[in-house]
Structure formats: C-alpha cells, structure tokens
Design a protein around this nucleic acid. Structure first.
Lengths: 352, 352
DNA sequence: TATGCAATGTAAAACGTTTTCCGAAAACAT
DNA sequence: ATGTTTTCGGAAAACGTTTTACATTGCATA
C-alpha cells in the first residue's frame, strides 16, 4: 500500500492540501477560513484512509512540538520520595490527560534549558523538586528565574513552600496539619513533637509543616521534642543517606536517649515515620500506647508498616492531571501564574 | 542574533551544507565521502556557533527518530512493583546511557504500535510486564508476536519466565534462589515454605521462583506451607488489591490459622514479605525467632521494616543501562534476540 | 602522455507539512 | 444594477535537514 500523506487525503476528499491541513489544525489562525462542513468531510476521509500527520513535517513547519517534558529532580539528585511511588502516581494522572494531545518526554536533569530552547518541548513538569533546605537551592532558584524571564511554561509539582510563590501544584500542607491537629486533640495527646529531615546545619529554617503544627497547637507543641529544639545535649547528625527513613530512625534513637520523647510525634513525611517506627520496634517502644506516630504523604506501604501508619494522604494522581491543565492555561495565557494547593485527606490507621 | 542553521555553519566553515550534514551523521552511507579532517573542522565551527540540528528537519528527512519509548505496563494495569521505586531506578540506569544520543519518550499503554508505526520511536523498553499468571497474558503475547513479526526493536525488563524466551533483561531468579537456599542451609531451617502472590485460580502454574526453591531444597521444602499446596482446609482468596502486600498479610493469616506455618517462609517479592511481616507483628509471631521471613527484590524500605528484611537485591539500574545496550545491538543486528539474566545479590538483615 | 580509479566535495532534489497570500464567489448594502 | 465587504478555498512558498547523483581533483598505472 502506498504511503498516505496529506496529498492522498486531499485527493480523496477532492480538496487542496491546505484545506486538509486546516482540518487538522482548527485552532490555527488560517483555520477560520474554511467551513466546518468541508473540514468535517475531510476529517472523515482522513479517518477512513487512516491518515496521521507526519510528526517530523509537523514539527519542522509548525510551532508546537506537542510534547511536554517530565523531569524528576536535578541531575544526580533524586529526592527520597521519588524512590517511592511518587512519579508513577503523578504520571498516572498526567498521562491520560495528555494522551492524544501531548507526548511526554523524559527530560533528565540539566537538559531542561536545552530542550526548551530548541523547541523540542512546549512545556515542562518539574517533579520532585524540594528547594527548601536543599544544598543546590541557589541553582534551582536561578533556573526558575531563567524560565520566568523567558516565559517558558513550567510547573513544579509539590514544591510546598509558602514563602516563595512559584508556578506549582502541591499538597495544602496547612490543611494537612489541621487534620493532624484535629486528630491529636481528639486523641487527647498533650505533648506533641515533630521529626523532620535531619540536617547538619542548625541554622536552616524549619520546614513549613513543622511551623504549621506549632501554630495550630500552641498549647501542646513541645519544641524540645524536635531535633532542632532538643538543645545542647543532643548532637546534630550529618545526613548520610538519601532516604529519610534513616532520619526517623536516628531521630527516635536520639530523642529516646536524651529522654525528650513526647507522647505524640508528627513526622515530616511517611518515610521518616517508617524509620521512626522501626526504631521504636527495635527499642521496644510500644506504638501507639507509649508513643503515637503520625506520618505525612499517604505512601501505600503505610498500610503494612508495624503498626499500620496513621497519616495524611496526598492526591498525587490529581497533581498530575492538574499539572496538565495548568500548563494548557499557561500556554494560552503566558501571564498566568499560580501556586495551587490541593487539600489532602486523613488516613486513620493504628499508629496514633 | 540570527538563527543558526546548517547554512550558517556551512558558510562559516567554508564548505557546502551537505558536508556539514556529513559531519553530524558520520555513520550514514554518504559519510564515507568526506575526509575526517574536514569533518572535524566543521564540527569545531558548529560548536563555536552553538549549532544544533533542527529536530523537525532531521526527523522529516532522516530515518531515525533518535527516541526510545519507555513504557510501564499495559493500559490501566500497573504492576505492584511499579508503585515502588522500580521505574525510577531503571530510568536512573537508562537515562544517563541514552543521554545525548537518544531521547526517552513515555509511552502509555496501548500506544506502542502507533508510535512505532509512525516512526515516532526507534525502539521500545517495556518495563513492569509480568505476563505469567496475568489475566491479559494472551494480549501481551500477541503484542510480542506482532513486534517480532515486524522486526521492531524492543526489550522487556524483568520478565523472568524461563519458559518463554523473549528479548528481555531481568534478574537471574535461579541464582537468587540459590543465594536464599544457601542462607537457609547455613541457618539450618528445616521447614521451608513459599508465599507467592495469591490468585483465585488454583490451576495457575507456580511462579518460577517457587519452582527453583523446590528444586534447590528438595529435602526441606514443604509444599503444604504454600498456599497452593495448603490443601482443602485453606480457602483460596480472590485478589482484591493491586499491591502484593495484601497477599503476604492474608497468606500469613491463612497459614497461621490452619497451622501450616513452617520455620522459614520465602516470599515471592519484598512487598509480600512486608505484608507477611505486618501480619506477624499483628499476630504476635516473633520474627525471626519463630518464623524466618525472606524477601526478594531488595526494595530500599526493607532496611526499615520491622524487623529489617533479609532479601535478594536486584540491580535495577543495571537493567536500565543494559536495556539501552540491548536495543543498540538489536538496531544494528535485527536478528539479535536474547534473554539476559543478571545475577542478584544477597542482602542479609535480621528477618532470617 | 593518456587512462582509469579512488577520494573528496557540491548542487539540487526530496521529505510532508503549515502558513501566507491571493482570487473567486457569495452576501450584503446602496 | 452596482459597488463593497465577507467567506471560502487553493497555489505556492517556506521550514532545515538528508541523500542522491554528479563533478572535480590527484595519483598510480599502462
């Protein structure tokens, strides 16, 4: 069978190739100059002939690559959560939404500019970027700046800082902490501490989640049950591992040894909570009888930890499809910029 | 600044545009007809002008898309392991290898044929495809057949069946089971059972891992400590969950209730083992004192389960870069087909 | 010195679209 | 009936490469 291109379709439909092109690009400026009746007829013929526009030609002549870049974190820096189910869940939302309209290109760290520059991608989804307390924060902010300056459409997934408004989609951490605070009041835990990712630099600001918790439970929050606030006795430990499990593990050991364990410990994320849980198991601390542990993220494994983890679930699939909508909006209106926060959901299991 | 295309480079280098093209496609047939000296000079000029061949034009005129498709499982079917860190680890191997040479396109389930047909991708990496005991096995095999018939370069990651030789890269399961068998002998566990994924169909063949274990430990293996072999008393449970955690959980409950628990239980994968571990925690079964549990996969979370999981680690990053090499070989020599098995590694922690 | 052949480079023809520009026809206003 | 606008569709010019086919040069051989 002969190759079927735009010419064959044109001939079969009895129109010129430009009309066929218009049938496939109804939104283009020239599209206005053909009647919908004709276009529909052309489309029917095209369907029958099983015609698909040649991607190379489209790309060469047209202005859109119909491709969205998806990238997980800076080069050689994969955030801990991306070693769990994060990317797949996000992609499960993004993929179906983009299907048929945009293709998804995996852009490895550092190639963003390049791909955007050569028009290989129309827009970029940056996932797994935590710029807060990140040693390469400067580099990341500079990149965002560059994107803004050039008007590149991009969106960051799960960048939760409320101090730096950026085009982003993420969990409404404050709402999440409200859920947790509500649970804590319900259970009646009087002493509440927080366990975030460890860092060797005590100067670094606390993560937003900790701040929210302090604000929401001023009467119950115990700063000394926090590694930053634990005081002189407690040494700061340099981070050695990529995974934050280790932070939870170390955190419990430290707080236990220095007798700073509260009645309830809220963890910055589920991975930290898992680490905390294993340390409790090891040290014989009963959860939740002696120590209640609450996570944040809703990782599926939480259902099967020992004991099953009470946590706050992030709608990651939702982030994915919202990211797509965000970018479409941004492409249409280059001035659009918003930090969207999606409310999470409380998952009550048995650790608190 | 004016756009820099092949013409500008040609002019700057004092050669014709075809010579510039040759400099960038040294492997093409026509490449032989220009001296390496000239080509190198052209390349230097191109570098200086910061020239990159226009992708659309390359695609239109050339025959290769320089793109590899990466796909995780059939539409609407994400295998449990892909909700852990699998895809990212594989991509961590594949990405750097492909970088600069091939782009990576995320192909969502069902679009493979389409993308290959329209030459949008040169080759395909299929990850997360377990065709054994899969309700859609027929569909998958048919797809593989079609690929073979048309000579599409593709490779399946982690398809471990030894009964159906397919272009694949995966863990050498037999070698893995040898490691486990060795550990079991060393520890002196006399009764060994196996816990695979549950299925409502008792007719289905055992997974290869179980078969290897039986073959390797004929003296210690207890078929009754296996859900398939547990006999009439034990009901088969239909799968309800995507995650195999649940299978481990249910498995332990069942075996415990019907008093078929062996001294040591080998699990088909880590997720099952985590489910088993939580069930033990819940039921008060001490691990490893009463029951030793061994996993398979080397999921990072194993380090922080309760107790930390003894398992066999799969070199997933290695799979990724081997997949790239595989496809390159296949593109060069269309007849090439091999099922590569990479030996795993024993990770001794405290659950056995 | 003529001849043939290998080595090197170029001109020009694709590749299959999108888009610009223009003319014909139709609709409308006078 | 005439002039003016609007609507519709086509001809043709890009887009930036790769590849084919051919021209030139240099060199060894007859």
């Amino acid at each position: 069978m002969a190759k079927v291109g735009i010419r064959q379709v044109a001939e079969a439909a009895g129109v010129s190739i430009s009309t066929v092109s218009k049938a496939f690009n109804p939104d283009s400026a020239a599209g206005r100059y053909a009647s919908e009746t004709t276009l529909e007829k052309v489309r029917a013929v095209a369907r029958e002939l099983n015609y698909t526009p040649n991607y190379g030609a489209t790309l060469l002549r047209g202005q859109s690559s119909h491709t969205i870049g998806f990238t997980i974190s800076l080069p050689e820096q994969v955030s801990a959560s991306f070693l769990s189910d994060y990317p797949v869940r996000i992609l499960n939302g993004l993929g179906p939404r983009a299907r048929g309209k945009y293709q998804l290109l995996l852009v490895s760290g550092g190639d963003y500019n390049y791909y955007l520059d050569i028009k290989r991608i129309d827009a970029l989804v940056l996932a797994g970027f935590q710029h807060r307390n990140n040693p390469r924060e400067a580099e990341m902010l500079e990149m965002f700046e560059r994107f803004n300056a050039r008007g590149y459409p991009y969106v960051i997934i799960n960048n939760n800082s409320d101090r730096l408004p950026l085009p982003s989609i993420g969990c409404d951490d404050r709402a999440g902490m409200e859920l947790i605070a509500g649970l804590i009041r319900k259970r009646g835990y009087e002493n509440v501490g927080f366990l975030g990712e460890l860092t060797s630099n005590p100067q670094q600001e606390h993560c937003d989640r900790q701040r929210y918790l302090e604000e929401l439970l001023p009467d119950r929050f115990r700063p000394e049950s926090t590694l930053h606030g634990a005081g002189e006795g407690v040494p700061m430990v340099p981070r050695t591992e990529l995974y934050s499990h280790a932070d939870g593990w170390t955190g419990i050991h430290l707080l236990h040894r220095f007798r700073r364990l509260p009645r309830c410990l809220v963890c910055g994320n589920d991975d930290i909570a898992f680490g905390a849980l294993s340390a409790c198991y090891k040290l014989g601390i009963r959860v939740p009888e002696e120590l209640a542990v609450i996570g944040f993220d809703g990782t599926p494994s939480g259902e099967f930890s020992c004991p099953p983890l009470t946590t706050v679930g992030q709608p990651l699939e939702r982030f994915g499809d919202m990211a797509f909508d965000y970018l479409m909006k941004k492409i249409e209106n280059p001035a659009y910029c918003e930090a969207i926060r999606v409310p999470p959901v409380l998952i009550e299991r048995s650790s608190a």
